[in-house]
């Protein structure tokens, strides 16, 4: 965990195309409208933090980015490509499951409840997607998996099943598992919310290293310290809309909106 991740080749990337772009994104569950028109842009290499009270729609928005939820209106682009649909002329075609799966390869996701595969050891969890999805041979995948586990400081736990690991260790394995697919975008859905306070630090350290390596990250979090220190942009959401956005240090220390002020006064 102490050694830095290798620097990614961010210079070669076209920074004019936003990694994530949302235009008027709406999402309803039945009668309940959870997202009421979200507009935002995540630049490549950026650490983009989403904060807000529970029920504000921030996790739902995150899940829309890799099409775990279908949006009802608006447009959502990842790396310049429409999420979940293909546009021909003025018609939208739904993508087949296979095509959606192809696009998800490039987006890593880390869940609040880890969602490690409990019937596989840590190293098997990390190997699973490269072997099954990319068709990498097992020896190579294992070597890669061991390197990733080393990065998150868990090489000595490779043979352990998730139930034999602490929450913080499980979450670090989950990060390694997502990194194994070499994603260009990482989504974090409240990665530290289910952890003992003592274990939060280890996970945040891994995420900080990842940010320093130039990875584009969208992070839904309640860790204001992390947002202030590592974040490049911050969005405060409430009631399915973006209330305030900007540089995290400015928004967190000098919020403009009443709603933001009252939220921050409770969590800081």
């Amino acid at each position: 965990m102490t050694d830095k991740l290798p620097q990614q080749d961010t210079a070669a990337r076209d920074t004019s195309v936003p990694m994530v772009k949302a235009e008027g994104v709406h999402k309803s569950f039945g009668q309940v409208e959870v997202l009421k028109g979200i507009d935002l842009e995540v630049k490549p290499g950026e650490v983009f933090c989403l904060i807000g009270p529970s029920g504000s729609g921030k996790s739902t928005f995150l899940r829309c980015i890799n099409h775990l939820e279908k949006i009802n209106a608006g447009r959502l682009y990842v790396d310049g490509e429409l999420v979940g649909y293909r546009q021909q002329g003025d018609k939208l075609y739904e993508l087949r499951d296979r095509e959606v799966a192809m696009k998800r390869r490039n987006i890593g996701m880390v869940f609040q409840r880890f969602n490690l595969f409990p019937h596989m050891t840590a190293v098997e969890n990390v190997m699973e997607a490269p072997v099954q999805v990319k068709g990498m041979n097992k020896a190579e995948a294992k070597e890669r998996a061991m390197q990733l586990l080393e990065r998150v400081g868990l090489a000595d736990r490779a043979g352990h099943y998730p139930s034999q690991l602490s929450g913080g260790q499980q979450q670090r394995v989950a990060i390694a598992r997502a990194l194994a697919m070499d994603p260009k975008l990482m989504l974090f859905d409240e990665p530290t919310s289910a952890l003992d306070p003592e274990l939060v630090g280890d996970v945040l350290d891994v995420m900080r290293d990842l940010a320093e390596s130039g990875m584009t990250m969208v992070v839904v979090t309640h860790e204001m310290g992390f947002a202030r220190e590592v974040g490049d942009s911050l969005v405060f959401m409430d009631g399915g809309v973006v209330v305030e956005s900007g540089n995290p240090r400015e928004v967190l220390t000098n919020p403009q909106h009443e709603r933001t002020k009252s939220f921050l006064s409770k969590v800081l």
């Binding site: 775990l68 998800r104 869940f111 997607a129």
Partner: peptide, 24 residues
């Protein structure tokens, strides 16, 4: 969450069922 995690890794429905869901 298991299905979601597998899908998020880019696994197809069939692979998710065979490798992740059925063993559990």
């Amino acid at each position: 969450g298991q299905t979601e995690a597998a899908h998020a890794l880019g696994m197809s429905h069939g692979k998710t069922l065979r490798r992740i869901i059925i063993p559990q």
